[in-house]
Design a protein around this nucleic acid. Structure first.
Length: 356
DNA sequence: CATTCCCGCCATGTA
DNA sequence: TACATGGCGGGAATG
């Protein structure tokens, strides 16, 4: 009497149903949205609550995002509940510094080596000025220990591995092992790897790295592609580049599935009426950001995504062809992101080349 | 089954 | 104390 029907997220959505989809909740997608939201020319400050609200996620997730982005210099901590948008232009600088540090640590660590391997120092504020206190404050332990496990540091070290190592394929296991510097306790490893997955997803969504497989072993690994594959594109003003895959077109849907406890959404959004799927003309619009985006570059088309090619048939690629015309609400893709990246990469490479 | 990694509990730091 | 941060790892979605 009853026939079982298979429902895909697409079908389900068409029917107005909501099924839990892990992908749509991934950090990578969140970061893409985050970047798209704050990459406006005149955005300067980022409020954590605002971000959480706009992106429709819990506050906790925003911490993950900013911590990782901060490791690359895209944002910087301003103060409580507040970060400032630095922008993609900072990436080259950050990478250079990270590379310097990485090389230094690698080659120069003999002599009074203490159990201090992880670098610190960088951009993250710290004392800002000598601590005038002469308390029997242990030089630096409790606080540094905390930082030693931070996502921020882990993220930087992960990047350093790519920038310094000559292997361009890195597996999360090897990274975890290396970053653990010792004791390959399965327990700690697992936790470390979990974190690396988070970081890798974020960087992958920004096209800083790409997921692949090691030739023969078939083991999953990441490759640093920071630039070439993107920069070589020739960056012709607006113009979507190669046929990337799967873009994630959904909105920032914040639905509750699973044990959700606190839903901090005080902004008007979310269902209101049975709308037809597609075309969510929701998207509020702040009182004018006025000032259109960059002149030369036309924020359009972009690509986000991961995964390059696999010999599998997956019809999970939605793509948003719309781009040149109809700049509507309706969420778009990365927009502008690539333009910045391209520029940044070129600078970064030119500099390295010159130095070489 | 193994891999990926989201979710949110709760320890820790701060005003 | 209330609130802000953000480790951490259980266990569910995916492969």
């Amino acid at each position: 009497m009853s026939s079982s029907i298979v429902v895909s997220s697409q079908d389900a959505e068409s029917l107005g149903l909501q099924i839990y989809s892990r992908k749509e909740k991934s950090l990578g997608v969140l970061v893409s949205n985050f970047l798209r939201l704050y990459n406006r020319d005149d955005v300067d400050l980022i409020g954590l609550d605002d971000a959480a609200g706009q992106l429709g996620v819990e506050r906790r997730r925003i911490y993950d995002v900013v911590n990782i982005l901060e490791s690359i210099g895209i944002v910087a901590r301003r103060g409580k509940n507040q970060y400032s948008w630095k922008g993609f232009g900072e990436i080259p600088r950050s990478l250079n510094e990270l590379k310097e540090q990485g090389m230094r640590e690698r080659l120069g660590d003999s002599s009074t080596n203490n159990s201090d391997k992880v670098s610190n120092d960088g951009e993250r504020e710290e004392p800002l000025c000598l601590t005038p206190d002469d308390q029997e404050n242990s030089s630096s332990s409790k606080m540094d220990q905390k930082k030693e496990k931070s996502l921020w540091l882990l993220s930087q070290n992960f990047v350093k591995m790519f920038l310094c190592s000559d292997d361009d394929l890195i597996t999360l296991d090897s990274a975890a092992k290396a970053l653990l510097s010792d004791s390959q306790d399965s327990v700690h490893m697992r936790t470390k790897v979990r974190r690396l997955y988070d970081i890798a997803n974020v960087f992958a969504s920004m096209n800083l790295i790409e997921k692949t497989h090691i030739p023969v072993t078939r083991k999953p690994a990441y490759r640093w592609l920071g630039s070439k594959s993107i920069a070589e594109k020739g960056s012709s003003l607006f113009n979507s580049d190669e046929p990337k895959k799967r873009v994630f077109g959904t909105e920032i849907t914040n639905l509750r599935a699973k044990r959700n406890k606190t839903d901090c959404s005080s902004i008007r959004k979310q269902i209101g009426y049975k709308k037809h799927d597609q075309e969510n003309k929701e998207q509020e619009s702040k009182p004018a950001v006025s000032k259109y985006v960059f002149g030369p570059f036309s924020p359009t088309g972009a690509s986000k995504t991961n995964n390059n090619n696999v010999g599998k048939g997956r019809l999970l690629e939605i793509e948003a062809l719309a781009s040149t015309y109809q700049p509507q609400y309706c969420n778009h893709e990365i927009t502008g992101l690539l333009g910045h990246f391209t520029e940044a990469w070129k600078k970064w490479y030119a500099e390295v080349d010159r130095n070489k």
